[in-house]
Design a protein around this nucleic acid. Structure first.
Length: 439
DNA sequence: TCTGGGGTCCTAGGACCC
DNA sequence: TCTGGGGTCCTAGGACCC
């Protein structure tokens, strides 16, 4: 029988911060989204204070005074580095690993001998000691059941009494008697299942399916008729039939986006041009990173739906004459799109660029090219070499060291850059920000 | 005053073809 | 008077994930 594990970091972003500031242990701590907009990670103590996932910062700000809540700006550079360290330790757990998100890995344990629960406990202890991140580990016959086991492991630790205490931290459903698995499912809400979101959970409950046990007892074919093949797969996975494969190598992205809310409302076309240039530059860099070209560039702008102002939002897709990964060609297309959709008189809150119709850079459509000057040919060898050099320079000297002039030159004058008032040092990736231990 | 960012998959329905 | 059947492709939108 197949066995899958899911290892994930508890309150991952908060745990990363705590590694370098142990005084935050035991405190209510949240990490804020870009622009210090809303809570995207919460310590257990912050949950206990009532902070909800995704809740706007200004709504919980008062808790800093009443409950000592600490709020930090997202430090993604730090989290990405900690994530790599954690994933490299998890790799030793079994032969096949799928890095599913910044804080989660699936591991295929099929055929791995020994007491898997015990191995899980050792892995957990090692990650805690070597990286400093506390994890939850769930093990089961399918990915969905491993996810469920992981939920039980974390909840048993966070809410004593909710599940049997011996299932805390590491929960191996594959090693439990059928009757106990049934009982655990009966005590878990249907909305906790991986793949069942708020909408479908509400529909299930309306039809009398409240807990995971009831969902697992449904007939897959009827589920497909009533909902969709996606929900059917979830039901089958809960029944022990694997429908979702492990993906050992991450497939290339089918689309690449860079979008941002602004720190302040933006009204001028020129500021939007700077922002769109920068977003496209970032997206193009990601595109070259996976050795792809794109065929279309989508550009959008919109006002804030949370404000009473008059609203405006539009997007436009600009097709390229030929697929490209050249920043200049992509920025040109994005700015052309921006010009077409910009309307004066609105307070813009967000803009973004998406690269669509991605394909491998090795696919080249032959064409009759009458340009004779190699140096000016976009996507000729000279252009590709130029982009490679720009990427290496920015990699070595920091983002934005070399950029297009339309990105704007004066940093101070920029009205649109994001707000990040409480970012911690990038302890593990910048020499200047390395923590110093004093005796 | 202040509300994130980046993805994937699936389905229904329209356009179009013979 | 009476107006088919079968298929593909594309797109927008919904739902989900972290």
């Amino acid at each position: 029988m197949a066995v899958v594990a899911l290892v994930d970091g508890n309150n991952f972003y908060v745990s990363c911060e705590r590694v370098f500031r142990p005084s935050l242990n035991g405190q209510p701590v949240i990490v804020l989204s870009n622009n210090d907009g809303c809570a995207i990670a919460r310590s257990n103590e912050a949950r206990a204070c009532g902070v909800k996932m995704g809740q706007p910062w200004f709504q919980v700000k008062h808790l800093t005074e009443t409950h000592g809540l600490v709020a930090l700006s997202a430090n993604f550079e730090l989290y990405a580095d900690m994530s790599e360290r954690m994933a490299s330790l998890i790799a030793g757990f079994g032969p096949v690993q799928e890095i599913y998100s910044i804080d989660e890995s699936f591991v295929d344990l099929t055929g791995v001998r020994g007491d898997l629960t015990e191995r899980g406990r050792k892995l957990r202890a090692r990650i805690l000691q070597w990286v400093g991140i506390p994890c939850g580990i769930g093990i089961g016959p399918t990915k969905t059941l491993a996810k469920l086991a992981n939920h039980i492991a974390k909840t048993a630790e966070r809410k004593p009494g909710r599940y049997p205490p011996e299932l805390a931290q590491v929960c191996n459903l594959a090693a439990l008697p059928q009757a106990q698995v049934k009982s655990l499912m009966a005590h878990t809400e249907v909305g906790e299942v991986w793949g069942i979101g708020a909408r479908i959970a509400a529909q299930l409950k309306a039809e009398g399916v409240h807990d995971v046990g009831a969902l697992a007892a449904l007939d897959p074919a009827s589920v497909r008729r009533r909902w969709s093949v996606t929900v059917e797969r979830t039901v089958r996975e809960l029944q022990g039939t694997a429908c979702i494969e492990l993906e050992q190598v991450a497939p290339d992205k089918q689309e690449i986006a860079t979008t941002r809310s602004f720190g302040h409302a933006v009204t001028e076309l020129n500021d939007l041009r700077e922002a769109v240039t920068e977003f496209t530059t970032r997206a193009a860099q990601k595109l070259r990173g996976q050795h792809s070209t794109c065929g279309q560039v989508l550009c959008f702008i919109r006002t804030s739906p949370f404000r009473p102002d008059k609203q405006y939002g539009r997007s436009v897709i600009v097709p390229l004459i030929r697929p490209s990964a050249d920043t200049r060609a992509l920025v040109q297309a994005a700015l052309r799109g921006l010009n077409a959709i910009y309307r004066p008189g609105y307070r813009y809150a967000k803009a973004g660029v998406m690269l669509l119709e991605l394909q491998s850079e090795t696919i080249v459509q032959g064409e009759l090219d009458l340009t004779t000057d190699e140096a000016t040919k976009v996507d000729g060898p000279a252009a590709r070499a130029l982009m490679g050099t720009v990427d290496r320079l920015n990699d070595r000297y920091g983002r934005g060291s070399v950029q297009l002039a339309s990105a704007g030159l004066s940093g101070d004058r920029r009205t649109w850059t994001m707000k990040q008032e409480r970012r911690t040092p990038r302890y593990t990736t910048r020499w200047q920000e390395m923590p110093i231990a004093r005796a």
